[in-house]
Design a protein around this nucleic acid. Sequence first.
DNA 1: ACGATTTGACCATC
DNA 2: GATGGTCAAATCGT
Length: 315
Amino acid sequence: MEGQKAMLAWEQKTLQSEVSLGLEAAKKLQARLSEASSPSSSSSYPAAETNEILMEQILSSYDKVLVMLNWSSSPPVQLTPATVAVVPVVNSGGIPESPASINGSPRSEDGGGSSESHRQDHMFNSRKRKMLPKWTEKVRISPERGLEGPQDDVYSWRKYGQKDILGAKFPRSYYRCTHRSTQNCWATKQVQRSDSDPTVFELTYRGTHTCQQGTPPPHPPPASPEKRNTRPKLTTTAQKPNDLLESLKTSLTVRTEGLDDADNVFSFPNTPPFCDFGTINDEFSSPIFDVVDWLNPTVEIDPAFPTFLQESIYY
DNA sequence: ACGATTTGACCATC
DNA sequence: GATGGTCAAATCGT
């Protein structure tokens, strides 16, 4: 099977990149901590938060590696408890299933087929879906520094539902891989804005991508535009920072209605928070993490604005 | 015209 | 029966 080979290569690549990401973050954190302990250096650090973010990055990377290992080998490895921001959760079944085998009977976007087989198919798939690896990440949107947290989501997602969740102030949005029908990719994701901290979004991933949509190397070499991001809508957003800022400045207008709830109020700065575009350039080309529009309190949200953030703003 | 999003309805699970 | 997850028709945006 060619697909399986591809998947193995993909897995290996992902593992490598996750491990090196984690390692990198760990080194940075180590440097920070050692510097911080010396009294002379006062505050060359942005904030304590940054350590937190680095920590999240480390944990996220290693946890994902563990999940992947779990998932391609048996018996499953016992994961560390979820006491941290990035919480990998192995589904209760804990049955590893190789990505290649996840692809069951294709059900191309349910074009309406006969209900009998349709139902059975549905049940089959939902049962199968439960077996998929699952983990959560937290991402904070900070006016000062943009998006913080594990930022490795470069996949394109398509929203397929939204639901009010009991006890939660904000609705949960459901996304699945855009390439579900074309590449039989069953990765899904849930986005839930945190009650306690509206600037934090909980991303729950289920299943990993089996599609070939520009598997994200940690530091991707410049690729052809359409290869870099499979989502046409967004390639237009991923332009040079200055151009981007300019276009945003001119095109964004006020939109504050509906933000009456105190919890919904973001303290946007008057100046663009994205000072370091160089670091986010490629990694933020995802529909979800492309928060380059998070620039101004008066944003008339661009269509390319990450969908889950777009919606959440209005709540 | 086509792909993405919205949203009410449906289904499974607890 | 309540809740979370998904479907799919309608709608929207390009």
